[in-house]
Every structure is written in structure tokens, then in C-alpha cells.
């Protein structure tokens, strides 16, 4: 995971600060997230959560963090306990068995982690607002 750079670590720290205690990410949790972010890792039964993030990407605020309610939102826990937001609207994300992620606006193209899924969503949206799910 070459990308766990200083920048990324700082972003995670900033997001933690921003979350103001809404979530607890332990050192062990972070380490687990690092090892499961790549396609080769871990597999189906590793429930370590990716690190939270909070940044402005192409003019839009993207955030990711542990989901409220222990990941059982909407009865499915699709994001395996992790929720992603674009300008405050939740983006439906899902973790694949190999540790990669997809979102409802990019459902057939897995990426390495939830932040990459959020950025792919911003690219795809071209400025459009997200419709809160479940749609309709």
C-alpha cells in the first residue's frame, strides 16, 4: 500500500478531528484498513474498516467514516459498516470480497478503497447532485 503516505495519514487525522469523537479508529483498526485496502488482501471475513476521510475533491466535499448504527443502515449493511457522503448526501457503497469497493454510480468498476469510490463518483456526477438512496 504505497499510498499510505504522510498526506493520507494527515488526512485521516484531520477527519478524525473533524468527526469530533463520532467514531473511534484505533491503531489496530487503521492497520487493518491498510492491509485490506488492496485487492490481494484478507478476504471475506475481515471486517476491519478503512480509515475515515474528509476532503474537498473537484470542488465537492467527500467524506467517509464508520456508519452510524454499526453498519446495519437500510437493513443491509451494504458498506460493511462504512458510509460515504458527497456534499452531505450518502453515496451507496459496497465492499467486494477481495477488499475492493464500488458505488451505485460506478457499480461495475471496482477501486481500491472508499475514497477512490467517492472520487470516482464525483468524476461521474459532473457536478450533479446525488439522490439520497434508496432512490424512489
Amino acid at each position: 500500500m504505497p499510498e499510505l503516505s504522510r498526506r493520507r495519514a494527515l488526512t485521516a487525522a484531520a477527519a478524525l478531528a473533524a468527526a469530533a469523537g463520532a467514531t473511534t479508529v484505533t491503531a489496530a483498526g487503521s492497520a487493518s484498513a491498510v492491509t485490506t485496502a488492496g485487492p490481494a488482501a484478507a478476504g471475506a471475513h475481515d471486517h476491519g474498516l478503512p480509515e475515515p476521510f474528509d476532503e474537498v475533491y473537484k470542488g465537492r466535499r467527500i467524506q467517509g467514516r464508520a456508519a452510524a448504527g454499526g453498519g446495519h443502515h437500510h437493513g443491509g449493511g451494504h458498506g460493511d459498516g462504512y458510509a460515504v457522503f458527497v456534499d452531505g448526501v450518502e453515496l451507496h457503497v459496497m465492499r467486494n470480497a477481495d477488499g475492493t469497493w464500488i458505488s451505485v454510480v460506478s457499480h461495475y468498476a471496482p477501486v481500491a478503497d472508499p475514497r477512490a469510490a467517492a472520487r470516482a463518483a464525483v468524476d461521474e456526477l459532473q457536478g450533479a447532485r446525488l439522490v439520497p438512496f434508496p432512490a424512489n
Binding site: 451494504h78 470480497a97 451505485v104 434508496p134
Partner: peptide
């Protein structure tokens, strides 16, 4: 369209899965 989307967001690798994966 509605049916397809309901399955695609509901089908998960570690849970119930029917239409996809």
C-alpha cells in the same frame, strides 16, 4: 429499472445475493 437497482444494492458478497455476484 427499479427492480434491477434494488437487487444490485441488495446483493452483497457476504450476505444474501441473487441477481449479481
Amino acid at each position: 429499472v427499479t427492480t434491477h437497482n434494488a437487487f444490485i444494492v441488495g446483493d452483497t458478497d457476504n450476505g444474501e445475493r441473487t441477481g449479481h455476484r
